[in-house]
Computed example of a mutant assay.
Amino acid sequence: MHDIAFIPDADPGSISSDVALFGDLIITTQIPLKPDGEMELGDIHAQSECTLLALKQALEKAGSSMARVLHLTIYLTHPEDRAGFNEVYKRYFSRPWPVRAGIGVAALGKPGMRVEVTAMAARVSA
C-alpha cells in the first residue's frame, strides 16, 4: 500500500483516518466538529458551516483546496435542511459546481448531528 497514504484523525480514539491519498486523489469525510474538538449541535446553518470549514482545512492540510473538489456526498438527517445547507454551501463553492449527491439518512454517528460530508478532490499540482 505504499501508493496509498492516510493522514490520521486528530482524535486518538478515532477509527477513521482524516484523509486518504492515492496519487493526486484526496478523499475525506468531515462532520460538524469545532476546532476545539467539540461537536457543533446547533441548527443546520451552524453545523454546515462547521462541517464545510473542517472540510476546507482538511483539504488544505492534504495539499488541495475547495476549488479542487470533484465530488461531494452530503448526508442529512432532515430533508428539510437541504435549503439551509445549500445557503452555506454556496459560500464555499461556486461554478463550476462539484458533482454532488444528497442522501437522507435516519441518523449519523453522534446524537444531534444533522450533516456529514464526504469529498473527493484533486491535489494541487506541484
Score class of each variant (00 low, 15 high):
33 L>G: 07
99 V>M: 09
91 R>D: 13
25 L>Y: 11
38 E>I: 01
25 L>S: 14
39 M>I: 11
78 H>N: 14
44 I>Y: 01
126 A>R: 07
32 P>Q: 03
88 V>W: 00
99 V>D: 13
65 S>C: 07
19 V>H: 04
80 E>C: 07
46 A>E: 11
84 G>S: 14
108 L>H: 04
107 A>V: 12
26 I>M: 07
46 A>T: 04
9 D>F: 10
56 K>P: 03
82 R>I: 11
67 A>P: 04
16 S>Q: 15
22 F>K: 12
4 I>T: 15
121 A>L: 07
34 K>R: 15
119 A>G: 03
74 I>A: 08
73 T>R: 04
24 D>R: 15
36 D>C: 07
8 P>S: 14
118 T>W: 00
65 S>N: 04
40 E>F: 03
105 V>W: 03
23 G>C: 10
35 P>L: 09
41 L>I: 06
44 I>K: 00
85 F>G: 05
17 S>Q: 12
76 L>F: 03
69 V>F: 00
29 T>N: 01
73 T>E: 14
44 I>S: 08
56 K>Q: 12
97 W>H: 08
26 I>T: 06
113 M>C: 09
65 S>Y: 03
19 V>M: 06
14 S>C: 12
40 E>I: 01
72 L>K: 00
121 A>D: 06
121 A>K: 01
65 S>V: 05
71 H>I: 04
38 E>W: 03
76 L>K: 02
97 W>A: 11
123 R>P: 10
20 A>E: 13
43 D>Y: 03
40 E>D: 14
45 H>F: 09
29 T>Y: 00
55 L>Q: 02
46 A>C: 01
90 K>Y: 02
69 V>N: 05
96 P>Q: 06
51 T>F: 01
106 A>V: 11
70 L>I: 11
121 A>T: 08
38 E>S: 14
46 A>N: 05
64 S>M: 06
54 A>W: 00
21 L>F: 08
5 A>N: 13
